[in-house]
Amino acid sequence: MDSSQLFGITMIAYLLSSAFYLALFIFRNSTPGFIGMLLAAAGLLIQTVGIGLRWYESYQIGIGHAPLTNMYESLVFFSWCTALFYLAMELKYKTRVIGAFVMPFAFIALAYASFSDRINDQISPLIPALQSNWLIAHVVTCFIGYGAFAVAGSLGMIYLLKKSAGDKPAQEGLFSSLPELKIIDDLTHKTIIFGFMWLSAGIITGAIWANEAWGTYWSWDPKETWSIITWFVYALTLHARFTRGWSGTRIAWLAIIGFVAVFFTYFGVNFLLSGLHSYGSS
């Protein structure tokens, strides 16, 4: 059994989990929801083992390093963070239906990592610039943030869906199984706050690393620039809420726009633009 097989199993678990959560959403029957949660938790566990195993494998072939150093590994880690963040949220706030909108992200990230021919899943040795503990701190902090923002973006979508279905009387319509608008709004806000902390830490650790490796903590390379654009978007969102009292639809849209910015920082820059962080294109 090697790590990529474990990730394959995880992928199937996340796919099934998404399907069961979806069944909970559509049929409002709590059994599939529970199964969906179990599948997500099992997937997370297997994925955790997989990440550990991949780490171990890298030592076995003599180029040991944390599995956080190329596009494949970062996608696996993104999927892990999203699933972990979502499950923690479900545990704390008892909002099971939301899994129908979040677990597909965890699944898609893994499926894309495994099946896209743009992505190389080999464990490769680290070029000198990547041999730094700051790299690990940087990737971990960024991706916890990204996982939270993926959840916030989903919450934004859920909000808009539910809102567009109108405030029909309860127990009617497809969206009535979703939490109340006010609760979704509140969760979106809390998730963005959490993500903003980690994104800030991610940008900071990245800057320190850049300074250690290249002698410049900030060089406006496209990836850095997009990360600060993302940070601006969320800072704007937070201030609009704290000081202008924005909530509901407008925050939902900002949560979605923010996630689009995250997505572009993560993928768009690697595939469409060029810069220091070009390892993603391999």
């Binding site: 496209p222 620039t225 654009i229 601006f232 978007v233 201030h239 000081t243 202008r244 633009l273």
Partner: peptide, 24 residues
């Protein structure tokens, strides 16, 4: 005013995009 802050954040985010598309 906080409106100015929101406007500036928006402007900085928006204009920063230009420099990632046009090589610097």
């Amino acid at each position: 005013s906080v409106q100015l802050a929101l406007f500036l954040l928006f402007l900085m985010a928006g204009t920063s995009i230009i420099g990632t598309i046009i090589p610097q």
